[in-house]
Simulated scan of single mutants.
Amino acid sequence: MKISSTSAGLAVAVLGSLSFGTSGAFIKPLLEAGWSPTAAVTARVVIGGLVLLPVALVSLRGRWHALWRARWRVIVMAIVGVVITQVFYFAAIQTIPVATALLIELLAPLLLVGVAWATTRRIPRALVLIGSVFAVGGLLLVIGPGAIRAVDPVGLMFAFCAMIGCATYFVVAARPSDGLSPVAFAASGLVLGGLILGLLGVTGLLPLTATFGDLPLAGIELPWWVPLVIVAVVSTAIAYVAGITAAEALGSRLASFVSLLEVVFAALFAWLLLGEQLMPLQLLGGALILGGIAAVRAAGSTDEFPATSLEKLESPAFGAQVLETR
């Protein structure tokens, strides 16, 4: 599925943010029941990839050359966009507050603006700068001003690595598909990323524990697999396909700004399903994020992340460099 209009791309991007935003409300009961973050993430990624696999095979129609041409793009997505982002985020929250780690990771849109500024040597349009200010202000209000505090420098470094991984995800997702459907791209990246996460868990490099009892959710007791399946299908399979589709249509910068709505949806689902309080300041923060998105959209994409930089992601040399870092 390829989307040509900006309005349709925005709609799909919002769907992706909404889907990603459900993850916290459904993952939290698993973590509270004794699941390690690695186990929960590995399960959601593997199941999400397997759910997409049949649709991906149909979309390929035997055109395996399309997948082969995009092999380095898939590898970068799996290693950087899926594995590194998740691993470094959970490494960060071992020593710094979750709110702080989340705030830093979600500054990925500002990183893209900065890189585009540095590589094109053109100052971003005023609307982009205004939108960035609005978006950051909105993030602070939704996540909580307490996210800004003195923290452990190692945890801070891990959070910044997660931010780089998140930004890389949007850059890779926005690359022209060259015949590979978003479903096939998402499925291959998730399956490969899930296998790598599982290998890290099995070898003991990351903790891999799980429990299998009933869990409380929205006031009722449900089997452990219900929230896991919801996270895998909605927050992973649908979310990644929507995010990749939107990034191709909107470009990495605008798609990354729309993705900030994830924190707004996460707060809403936590209120609806977990009974967590929804503060007026969070609603104001959501409005500021919307204002930031509108400003960035109005600015256009003349200073978008340069295509010449994106082309490096599919070169064998770049792929070899990424693999060497592992």
Score class of each variant (00 low, 15 high):
K2D: 13
S4R: 15
S5Q: 12
S5M: 05
T6H: 10
L18C: 12
L18G: 01
A25E: 06
I27M: 14
W35R: 09
S36W: 06
S36N: 07
T38E: 13
A40N: 10
V41G: 13
R44L: 12
V46H: 04
I47N: 08
P54I: 03
G62S: 09
W64A: 07
A66F: 12
L67G: 04
W68I: 12
R69K: 11
A70T: 04
M77N: 13
M77S: 13
G81V: 03
I84E: 03
I84T: 10
V87G: 09
F88I: 02
F90D: 02
A92T: 06
I96M: 08
A99Y: 03
I104D: 10
I104L: 14
L107W: 07
A108T: 06
A108E: 11
G114N: 03
T119A: 14
P124W: 05
L127A: 15
I130P: 01
G138L: 13
L139M: 15
L141Y: 04
L141T: 04
I148K: 07
R149V: 07
A150C: 01
A150L: 12
G155D: 06
A162I: 11
A162V: 09
G165A: 12
G165K: 14
C166A: 13
T168K: 04
V171Y: 08
R175H: 14
P176N: 10
S177R: 14
A184H: 10
F185E: 14
F185W: 10
A187W: 07
L190I: 08
V191R: 06
I196T: 10
G204Y: 02
L208F: 15
T211H: 13
E221H: 13
L228S: 01
V229A: 14
A232V: 09
V233A: 15
I238R: 02
I238Y: 01
A242M: 01
A249I: 00
R253Y: 03
R253I: 07
F257W: 05
E262Q: 15
V264Q: 02
A266E: 03
A267L: 00
G275P: 05
L278A: 00
P280W: 00
P280T: 00
L283E: 00
A287C: 11
L288Y: 00
G291P: 12
A295C: 15
F305I: 14
A307F: 09
A317N: 05
